[in-house]
Design a protein around this nucleic acid. Structure first.
Length: 275
DNA sequence: CTCCAGGGGTTCC
DNA sequence: GGAACCCATGGA
């Protein structure tokens, strides 16, 4: 069991259920999840974060995953001091944290997320892991590697019932396997060049690219935009992203999204077909 | 049965 | 460039 005495205000309910990750499940005992083949049960006790099933040697891994090294209290203070509107967003769910997820998992899950809803995305991801990920104890599965996914046939992937997204997944796996898209390079490139490299993958547009940069590579300056967020931004921040978010726009966006989802009831169109 | 889900590619102008 | 259309699923 791992224990972090000061989780710096992290709230699992907010952080794990805000649409940034898809492999955590709420149980009566806490949040059950698997990251890079490590299965844990996470819960908070007061100001502490407890991870059952995690060995002491993984302390640095989980501290990085939950971004415990980033001084969120100070960062959120900066947000709140720099913009009244943003302060309201932070107040909506102050326990949100932008997790540092594995690169390939973030890329694939956000490909699966397009024009889709969270419950179904979760099911798709679970079936994908069971199809070609390594099996852990107790019938749980790790997220597949690019090689494992690239080795799947379209026929096998049809079992996911992912629709047209299955083909996009294969393209992504092949691109990463071939080194055409490389996480180490993406982490170092200027943001626009990294985005362009990701968008060479068929099925990866600006939204999926930015989500991958933010959630899968810790590029907190990335700001995932889509039709829905654009509407929210126009209403909440007509003059654009507040300056106090500079360098952490993606983190700010996570709070804006949570606020807008609860307080801006009108749903936006997402470019779908009418008939 | 209809509508929708934090898209992306293609095809028009 | 931008607007309209297509894509396959399954939940509500």
């Amino acid at each position: 069991m791992l224990r972090f005495e000061d989780a710096r205000g992290l709230e699992l309910d907010a952080a794990l259920d805000c649409g940034q990750c898809f492999r955590w499940a709420r149980t009566p005992a806490g949040w059950r999840g698997i990251v890079e083949g490590r299965a844990v049960l996470a819960r908070t006790e007061g100001t502490a974060l407890v991870l059952e099933g995690a060995p002491e040697q993984d302390r640095a891994f989980w501290a990085n995953y939950f971004a415990l090294d980033l001084d969120y209290p100070t960062l959120l203070g900066r947000f709140c001091g720099g913009s009244k509107r943003l302060a309201a967003c932070v107040q909506e769910a102050p326990g949100i944290r932008v997790l540092r997820q594995p690169f390939f998992e973030a890329l694939c899950t956000f490909i699966l997320s397009q024009n889709n809803n969270i419950p179904r995305i979760r099911g798709l991801v679970e079936r994908l892991c069971a199809l070609c990920g390594d099996e852990l104890e107790s019938g749980q599965y790790a997220f597949p590697t690019p090689q494992q996914l690239a080795a799947c046939t379209p026929g096998q992937l049809a079992g996911l019932r992912a629709g047209w997204r299955a083909d996009y997944l294969l393209c992504a796996a092949r691109a990463v396997e071939a080194g055409q898209v490389d996480p180490v390079r993406l982490a170092a490139l200027p943001l626009d060049e990294a985005r362009a490299e990701l968008m060479t993958i068929r099925g990866v547009g600006p939204k999926v690219a930015d989500c991958t940069l933010l959630y899968g590579l810790g590029r907190w300056e990335a700001f995932p935009m889509d039709v829905w967020m654009k509407r929210a931004m126009e209403r909440l921040f007509p003059r654009g992203v507040p300056r106090c978010c500079r360098g952490h726009q993606g983190i700010a966006q996570q709070f804006i999204f949570a606020y807008a989802r609860r307080n801006l009831p009108a749903g936006g169109k997402t470019g779908k077909t009418k008939r």
